[in-house]
């Protein structure tokens, strides 16, 4: 009985000490501005996601004539763009409502999301050199189909290699940095949770 009373007193003491913190100042108009700007930003990002489909729609509506290889290539890009847009919209939707969940669910979702993002960054990182090789194989194959003109094929391969290096080296570095960041963020949640 005495122990219980002592525990309650300790708790009351801690509670009243805790309540002694003073409230920080808050600029309400600044908060309203920030909240509005964030809402518009989210809408703008969604609009930009959808806007990325317009080149494909233009090709479709303007009925531009293309070679079969290009048609297949554009169709593949179109399908992958749609998949990516659906994924992005899903992520934005989840992010918009995730803050209302209890912390246990929120942290687990955040952890899964960070792991997924790290995985995507890892895939992006390796897609850089895979794309370089794929482009070089495509050019070689195309040159072979056209009856292999040594000088022309060599200059095409050289140009493609330089362009790939210019594009994909920064891409690789960017993806690697993102992968490291997401892994570090996931680890910080694990550290925060682990007893």
């Amino acid at each position: 009985m005495k122990n219980n009373q002592s525990e309650n007193n300790d708790h009351d003491e801690l509670g009243s000490l805790w309540q002694e913190q003073t409230e920080m100042n808050l600029n309400l108009s600044e908060i309203k501005k920030l909240a509005d700007s964030q809402r518009w930003k989210q809408r703008f990002y969604m609009f930009m996601d959808l806007l990325s489909l317009t080149p494909f729609l233009l090709i479709l509506f303007l009925k531009i004539e293309l070679s079969l290889t290009l048609q297949v290539f554009i169709a593949l890009c179109f399908v992958s763009s749609i998949i990516m847009i659906i994924y992005f919209v899903k992520l934005r939707w989840a992010s918009a409502f995730s803050h209302q969940k209890n912390t246990e669910d929120f942290t687990q979702n955040l952890l899964v999301q960070l792991h997924n993002n790290a995985r995507i960054a890892y895939i992006n990182k390796h897609s850089a050199w895979i794309m370089t090789i794929a482009v070089l194989i495509f050019i070689s194959f195309n040159a072979w189909l056209m009856g292999w003109d040594g000088d022309k094929a060599f200059s095409s391969l050289l140009a493609a290699s330089l362009l790939s290096i210019l594009l994909f080296v920064p891409w690789y570095i960017w993806a690697k940095k993102r992968q490291i960041r997401f892994e570090r963020e996931a680890q910080s949640i694990k550290d925060l949770l682990s007893e």
Partner: peptide, 20 residues
């Protein structure tokens, strides 16, 4: 409890971002 959930979750995100 609703705003406390939002507040704590926002703080978890903050801690995650601050890990950099």
């Amino acid at each position: 409890t609703y705003i406390l959930r939002i507040a704590h979750n926002r703080c978890v995100t903050h801690v995650t971002k601050e890990s950099k």
